[in-house]
Design a protein around this nucleic acid. Structure first.
Lengths: 347, 347
DNA sequence: TGCGCCATCCAAAGCGCTTTGATAAGTCAC
DNA sequence: GTGACTTATCAAAGCGCTTTGGATGGCGCA
């Protein structure tokens, strides 16, 4: 069923039917009701392609998701982020168009999406430091919103981020207060902006107490379970093993836990662990008492809010770009405890 | 830059330019080259919306992903499945349109996608037994391909599935051969077809050796880490605790491992675990020696193949629907070992 | 020379919608 | 009863593309 058919059934012009359905005032109440009823009866839904050709609005948002070439890995937080964003799109009648691309190649995809008029805007994922995509998007005039931020980028843009620096500073302080001195950082890929910021938060807290940062304790890689395990295993075997780990992802933290247990140690007693927790739906961090002490911030909620921000931006491109900084919550769980006495003695 | 502009620059008609770009024969080689060069130079890309309006092809595939209402959970395998499918779409010039919907409401979304001509076909995720969506899609005439199968559905349709029954039968046999008799099944939601099939494989193997299945050892729920932990914890505390666990997801298996370790037992020595492993990129199951003995089948590869199958189906709707059954590979890792002696004695 | 036939190109219709610019009918004041 | 508005409707143009159904001219062949 299309407009033409529907209007001929009704004995009205396409104009009137279209106007009735889109809530324009130049239609009498009686006609509008008649049209709406008929539309429902014949289950008429406007053809999206035709509509967006006519209006110039694609009514779609693009998500260009970089795939880490090394492990062909798609960051598992995307699933939850997208689930959050989807609720916003549904509410506003937008579609979500997904593209997955080897990282580094995103710009071509953006250019293409713009040229084909396939989307009205994009969400920019996984920003790196000085991310060149931001000025590129501003240049070509494709509205966008960033999940995270890009240090070194001065031009204003729309973003939503967790305060990674303060979160990791606070987590480090928490460990220091427990008496830990040899603290390891198992961080994400350092090219990523969030990893950079987390490292800074960590380093700041250590510096504030004049505790040297051991370079062997600093790791940085894509956050798989295996990576957490390998990094922690290796460090735990060393002479002056860390007594605490600060981990950037609950997935890697699971690997760290595996390493700890394999070393015959007990997490929360012999070795403490704090992780960042994106509140992934399939990895709930315990019920009442969290398994891991964690800095927590729901990535799903982030998806929802950022999608709303992007839609607002699309509807009013001249408004100043909104920027949101969320504070992560520190939830104490069972993975942290006082530093073992030996560690104190040595200090 | 659009067709009109480009053709006026070239001093050619839109017809000729369009034909030149789309590889039609009624264009001289010289003209074609000239057109292609100009298109490149002015970076002309046809407007997708206009193109699909004219051709009637949306050049898009829909993925309608159900969200389990209970945990607001999106199955984590989707990320990898979609990454696989995306490579196929990119190659064929299709877009991927994602919709996330509270489970049970999918049919409306399909009807809508069809009515709006937003997609040329859909991938059907997470089929349940007797899944009504299959006949629904056949009815409304929207091409589709199913990731999995639906027992009880007789009409022919295009699907790709792992042989869940044989995989779990084989895994159970493996445990039985190791001397295990008290084997627990930590399965996914039983409404799902794969869970049903896995349970059957398990039951078959047990029945073949005349070993009774203990109903307290059968669990079924959405596969979170927490669920694996809870189910295993509870069973391990019981008088006649299982000596082996068969788990439907590596994520839940991680929870099972946590329960085992918390009980002061050692996985692979005191308690054996076999899990199904979808080969998720961020949860690699060890390097050389797998952490978990597992029935393994790459969900990313499944995504790639199923996407190809759907595209083939869209291009030739009258061909008999392709159906692919993949055999999972059983990879022996460190999580399985002979049943503890006490278990033998009691047998 | 004249005819038919390719090869090459084009004008225009059409995809399904929105929106502009009219038109026709009704209302009101004077 | 006339002109000025308002209200309710419509015909047609236009969004950017593909595709149908010609046109044009050059060539071989009788």
């Amino acid at each position: 069923m299309n407009l033409k058919e529907l209007s001929s059934i009704l004995g009205l012009s396409q104009t009137t039917v279209s106007r009735a359905l889109n809530g324009y005032p130049e239609v009498s109440a009686a006609t509008r009701e008649r049209v709406e009823l008929a539309a429902l009866k014949h289950s008429y839904t406007p053809n999206t392609r035709a509509k967006s050709l006519a209006t110039g609005q694609a009514m779609a948002i693009g998500h260009v998701i970089p795939m880490a070439t090394k492990h062909e890995m798609v960051n598992p937080v995307f699933a939850d982020f997208i689930a959050g964003a989807a609720t916003a799109y549904t509410r506003h009648g937008f579609e979500m168009v997904l593209t997955i691309v080897e990282d580094g190649n995103e710009s071509n995809v953006y250019r293409n999406l713009k040229a084909r008029a396939a989307v009205d805007g994009v969400i920019l994922h996984a920003p790196s430091m000085n991310d060149s995509r931001i000025s590129f998007l501003n240049e070509i005039g494709l509205p966008f919103a960033v999940h995270g931020r890009a240090s070194g980028q001065n031009e204003p843009y729309c973003w939503l981020d967790v305060n990674n620096r303060s979160a990791f500073r606070r987590a480090t302080d928490f460990l220091l207060d427990l008496g830990h001195r040899r603290i390891a950082l198992i961080n994400g890929n350092e090219a990523m902006d969030f990893a950079y910021r987390r490292r800074h938060g960590f380093a700041e807290a250590m510096a504030a107490r004049k505790i040297p940062v051991v370079s062997e304790f600093m790791h940085s890689e894509e956050m798989t379970e295996e990576y957490g395990y390998r990094a922690a295993s290796k460090m735990l075997k060393a002479h002056d093993a860390p007594t605490a780990f600060l981990v950037s992802s609950i997935i890697s933290a699971i690997g760290v836990r595996r390493a700890i247990e394999e070393a015959g140690l007990i997490m929360g007693r012999d070795v403490s662990v704090i992780t960042h927790d994106d509140a992934l739906s399939y990895l709930p961090n315990g019920d009442e008492i969290p398994i891991f002490t964690a800095t927590r911030s729901s990535v799903r909620e982030a998806g929802r809010r950022l999608a709303e921000m992007l839609i607002a931006r699309i509807n009013d491109p001249k408004a100043a770009p909104e920027q949101v900084l969320l504070e992560a919550e520190l939830r104490v769980g069972r993975s942290t405890g006082p530093a073992p006495v030996r560690a104190f003695a040595e200090d």
